[in-house]
């Protein structure tokens, strides 16, 4: 007897229901509110794998197994290039990305209806079948990080505003002088008065001042916004 069913690794209440919407047989139910996790009714499912391709979370898998066989086929969503070829031997990875064995690629489906998420069907041994979640995409550089001694205590000063070249220590000195408003700290420190118009550094200034004064950013006030919001050439302003 053949059995086709899906596995859903969707454990968190997020607002999402394409699996429910695409299923022609109402085998998946999210219902209302939309944040509920999907429930699966195997008896209604015909194993069409539409849900596997549509799931934005890439977390639905189709399992095909046959009674008496020590093999099973897992169809997984796959979004990497190059795609594996039919008949190719693939390293099979589990939920934690650990290699758990090998499988043979039986089908590769990548038509318009999958919208870029290819369906890769891999035949694996029953022993690892239900754990299979991915196939190895490429050998990556997984060199181990190196332990560094004596890094923690030293304070290194650095620029907090690169346009106006203001050092963190300079900002702190000013803030400690008793400047209690963000607009004034901007005026005195020049953080945020440069070419980027504060887009890269205002936030840093807010949080630094908040740390020093113990006030919330909301209490520190927001500097005025002045035209133009992007640098504009003088001759353009000429009209």
């Amino acid at each position: 007897m053949k059995r086709k069913y899906i596995l859903i690794d969707c454990f968190q209440d997020i607002p999402c229901n394409p699996c429910e919407e695409i299923c022609p047989h109402k085998a998946i139910e999210v219902g209302s509110p939309i944040t509920r996790t999907p429930r699966y009714y195997e008896e209604r499912c015909d194993g069409c794998a539409k849900c596997v391709a549509v799931c934005p979370g890439l977390c639905i898998y189709l399992v095909e197994e046959e009674e008496g066989s020590d093999k099973m086929t897992i169809t997984l969503p796959y979004e990497f290039l190059p795609l594996p070829r039919k008949g190719e031997l693939a390293s099979v990875l589990d939920y934690n990305g650990r290699e758990v064995g090998q499988g043979i690629v039986k089908r590769v489906k990548n038509t318009k209806s999958e919208n870029g998420t290819a369906l890769i069907s891999v035949e694996v041994s029953r022993a690892i079948g239900l754990a299979a979640r991915n196939i190895l995409i490429r050998k990556t550089d997984d060199s181990e990080p190196e332990l560094v001694e004596g890094e923690r205590e030293s304070f290194t000063d650095f620029q907090i505003c690169r346009c106006e070249e203001v050092l963190l220590s300079e900002l702190r000195t000013l803030a400690k002088m008793g400047i209690v408003f963000a607009p004034n700290l901007r005026r005195f420190s020049r953080v945020g008065l440069g070419l980027c118009q504060g887009k890269a550094c205002s936030e840093l200034m807010f949080s630094e001042l908040s740390n020093i004064t113990g006030m919330t950013v909301g209490e520190l006030g927001h500097p005025k916004a002045r035209p133009p919001v992007r640098p504009i050439k003088l001759r353009e302003l000429f009209g």
Partner: peptide, 9 residues
């Protein structure tokens, strides 16, 4: 004339 104006106040 080709300088960027970044602010007014």
């Amino acid at each position: 004339e080709d300088l960027d104006v970044i602010r007014s106040f």
